[in-house]
Design a protein around this nucleic acid. Sequence first.
DNA 1: CCAAAAGTGTTGGGAATACACCCATGC
DNA 2: GCATGGGTGTATTCCCAACACTTTTGG
Lengths: 258, 258
Amino acid sequence: MSAVGKLSDRPVGGSVGRFHHEVLASVLEVRDGELRVLLWRRARPPFEGCWALPGGPLGAGERLGTSVVRHLEAKVDVTGIAHLEQLETRSDPDRDPRRRTVATAYLALVPAGTDPLLPPDTSWHQVERLPPTGFDHASIVTSARERLRAKLSYTNLGFALAPPTFTIAELRDLYSAALGHPVSATNLQRTLQRRGVIEPTEVQSRPGAGGGRPATLYRFARRELLVTNPFAAFRPPDGAAFRPPEGAVFRPPEGAVR
Amino acid sequence: MSAVGKLSDRPVGGSVGRFHHEVLASVLEVRDGELRVLLWRRARPPFEGCWALPGGPLGAGERLGTSVVRHLEAKVDVTGIAHLEQLETRSDPDRDPRRRTVATAYLALVPAGTDPLLPPDTSWHQVERLPPTGFDHASIVTSARERLRAKLSYTNLGFALAPPTFTIAELRDLYSAALGHPVSATNLQRTLQRRGVIEPTEVQSRPGAGGGRPATLYRFARRELLVTNPFAAFRPPDGAAFRPPEGAVFRPPEGAVR
DNA sequence: CCAAAAGTGTTGGGAATACACCCATGC
DNA sequence: GCATGGGTGTATTCCCAACACTTTTGG
């Protein structure tokens, strides 16, 4: 065992402990049947010609969430962002060859169909087939994809991928693209409706040429993150007073867009 | 829509974007039938007399995980830490009244029964009944508790709460304390054994005075984080080629102790 | 023999997948 | 009428909670 002693909460030296801090965003959207991420092409070294996540330095009096939104404004119409959540903070001293930089990554979701004007150096790329990327950004995209996939299964996070109304077939395509495997429209509808995640509207979509029964348009009952499938196992027994974890309802994170 | 234009990845000014960065640890252990967290009592303002999470400033060439371990060495025997994972990064400019400080919080788990020597200003406190705490540390503890509770249900994270071998009754008490509600020993055993999380050893425990059938001692099959209950819903169809998410297997984070 | 504690057998319910079948439209 | 796509009915499977019952010990 190491020496046990009193620990000061003051930094040791004067200039010790100040770091460049940047924020990065994995902006994900289902486009053309694929889950895609917004990347911009670096014009300068390091990683010249490679693709990178949008982001930038944290501002002096700024919160991380606010900072992501601010930096994203230069790339996309931020009002299109339906969900924003912190992923993780990377601190490898060598992750940026120029200087030591701590980076906090965010996951941002944009509903399908929104097609923001993009600067010329910026475009959407398949999450499953990334072009050459710089820094540790590829692994951050992986992290974002896994977070999205997990939360699609036990929350109502689909709202952030879907337009205001949609047919079940359209929703199936969105889930299928995001999850990376085929999804049955039949079971998707039943599962989400039983959980109260989606609800039918009065409106029906018109069938395309070639006919077919007109599809009901659905919408998400809530457009904020809710845990709909709390725990598969070890749920409290019938009688037990159970305090719902306050994390269950989505508190908009720092600088969330709504 | 905001002006769309090229975004430099260079910080704007010279001295802009350097921040004090600290790490904090929620060290959790089940003690005396309760989930408890390690806190130390502040001797100086701000929050003099209040309790706070252990931690301290990030070092110059240091990764966050390494830093947590280093700071914890002053409080506990770090070899006792069975699991360490990053929780989230807090950036409220006012979270520390002295100066603007970004903090990255970690969850650390210590198996029941380990009783490290502690410095005099440090002790264990019920997670459900925290004493007066300083900064945003109370909400960090809440965050840690919720992360633990969630992962107990769909991973094998119990290994980090349990000693090397244990009876089902002992394990039941650990889960019950961590989850905050009664747990059935019968169903706990069946569920964890079906998932391959725990396995019986050859050894049996001796019954206490008053008799009773001797209990089999069990152990966790793996002592690293594994997702055992991947998704309740939207599992890929039978035939579909499914690439297991690489996040499924626990990569020891920066500075993990093992 | 009885109490105490551990572990198994069994049942029932809920939720998800799979698949057959019915419905509503265009042509 | 018939092709096309949407939606429902239903069976099956699996997982888990509940609870009764059996097993193995100490006294």
